[in-house]
């Protein structure tokens, strides 16, 4: 889970202003936990244990509480970020349209199994649950973006582009 590696983490001045602006929107200090976890992740790419301590201070709660929230949700990254995180939807509708063969193709091309990262740390492949893009399956999410109506040819073209980056 979260690495205990020491990290330098703080909120920028702009972030501090933003925090003060939204603080009044939540009746309890703890309500800020998710917004602050997102801010840290947007700024640093991941959430370290030190970041959780920082958030706990802002939210008047314990780091353990912040940890329990950060680990409940699947989107909070508790390890150093990967350049390309490929998340292939593998629920029923995409499954009916061939998501398993897309996943197998990616495993084959990247030389890893779903749930693993490449040795150079550039790619991580994950099989995920429904991303509400069922009409354009099979599909995957690469970092923030959706890639829809996938074919093995399309996937190859994407990998080529990302490999050259």
């Amino acid at each position: 889970m979260a690495t205990t590696e020491k990290t330098e983490v703080k909120f920028s001045e702009a972030r501090k202003q933003e925090i003060e602006r939204i603080r009044g929107r939540y009746e309890t200090p703890r309500g800020l936990i998710m917004p602050l976890l997102w801010m840290i992740q947007d700024d640093y790419g991941w959430i370290s244990y030190d970041a959780m301590e920082l958030i706990a201070g802002e939210c008047e709660t314990s780091p353990a509480w912040v940890y329990s929230i950060a680990t409940f949700y699947t989107m909070f990254e508790l390890e150093k970020p990967i350049r390309y995180h490929l998340q292939v939807c593998n629920t029923l509708s995409c499954g009916l349209c061939g998501s398993e063969s897309i996943l197998a193709h990616l495993e084959d091309r990247l030389g890893i199994q779903a749930g693993e990262s490449t040795e150079d740390g550039r790619f991580r492949l994950t099989a995920v649950e429904c991303l509400a893009s069922c009409g354009t399956g099979p599909m995957m999410q690469m970092n923030d973006e959706y890639y829809e109506s996938l074919t093995t040819e399309k996937v190859d073209a994407m990998l080529e582009e990302w490999n050259c980056d």
């Binding site: 939540y26 703890r30 936990i33 917004p35 699947t74 989107m75 909070f76």
Partner: peptide, 22 residues
């Protein structure tokens, strides 16, 4: 903004999520 949990579509789970609970 949610962070990946189907159950937060259940209305009281959604409320807890806003309050900074699981």
């Amino acid at each position: 903004k949610g962070a990946g949990a189907y159950i937060c579509g259940e209305e009281t789970a959604l409320l807890n999520s806003i309050e900074g609970l699981r």
